[in-house]
Design a protein around this nucleic acid. Structure first.
Lengths: 187, 187
DNA sequence: GTCTATATTCGGATAGAC
DNA sequence: GTCTATCCGAATATAGAC
């Protein structure tokens, strides 16, 4: 792996672990094994490097979700697979974490991948729930967009509650609660 | 308001806006109008001051929630009032925000109020849902603890989605989705 | 109690040699 | 491309005067 690549991957890890304000160029250099000159040769500065890292993380999450959403199975099955997929719960969401970071949200370029990822995810899930409703698998009264938003929120909030408790089981509990409520809407 | 008090209140604001790693002693001093000497006279350092600020924020949230939970009305009514209460959505949750902060979670003292607040909130809400179930207001199949965890997660995740989108309406959408699902469990 | 002065390390970046 | 040297201000404190 060349230095440029190592810089991006190290930045992804650090943004995940410590957020943007908590990640220093020095820490990136140490983890990647690249020196200052190398870093400032490949990237203009911290924010440009963070953008490359963040965009890649968002793309990864999107690809994984889409693979699950477009797999065979009923809508509820696919949503369940997505919600219950194994996750590094105590580390949290590599993209959602940055929505809390003031310096990320203050920078339009950095903010864009975060906004787009959640916009896509919520919309795609709403689409899926809409299909389920049309197919008669889900109650006609179910609001696809509101429900999709709530499900994505359960995941993001689940990460927070699990970290607060120091236990991944809390995340699973939140997902159980959401699926328990959704089950009632199955026809 | 004396300096000690101003220091705590300024720290609460900054922790809310910028998190723990993003808040410097200098910023606290500037906002509070206290000098360095004053700050280090009243508190041993940044972490002790943050603890005082965080504990107070958690106490406030708890008191507000308890007032809503113990008000008159059916269980679903009280839960709805709590979920729909007006919030500073784009600022996020002053306590939940810190669950994402690595330096807060790494310090047992700082972590404690976060863990206790969410433990209390989830438990209290589960208790309420349990009462509703016993009273026949909610479906006998509803799992109080899992449902309570999901509802708290919707709030915490709602903050994140709203910040990502730059719009408080996304928070409201998530709450709508959760209440829409819960409504099906009403008998 | 509050202030100013000082110390040390880090954050974020530039300059120029190899 | 990558390295080392250097810069300047911020972060987190301590010391001691008032």
């Amino acid at each position: 792996m060349d230095k440029r690549e190592r810089l991006i991957e190290s930045t992804r890890e650090l943004l995940w672990e410590r957020g943007y304000v908590g990640t220093s160029p020095k820490a990136i250099q140490e983890r990647s094994g690249a020196g200052q000159g190398s870093m400032y040769h490949h990237f203009q500065g911290k924010s440009e490097l963070a953008l490359a890292a963040l965009a890649r993380s968002a793309d990864d999450l999107r690809a994984r979700a889409e693979a699950e959403f477009s797999a065979p199975g009923s809508v509820v099955e696919r949503v369940t697979v997505y919600l219950r997929r194994e996750r590094d719960v105590l580390k949290g969401c590599p993209v959602g974490r940055l929505a809390q970071d003031p310096d990320v949200m203050a920078d339009a370029d950095l903010r864009k991948p975060v906004e787009e990822f959640f916009g896509w995810l919520t919309g795609r899930l709403a689409e899926l729930l809409g299909e389920g409703r049309t197919a008669g698998e889900l109650d006609a009264e179910l609001d696809p967009l509101a429900t999709a938003t709530a499900l994505v929120a359960v995941l993001q909030g689940g990460y927070i509650l699990a970290r607060a408790a120091g236990s991944p089981e809390v995340f699973a509990k939140a997902v159980d609660g959401a699926l328990g409520l959704l089950a009632t809407k199955e026809t």
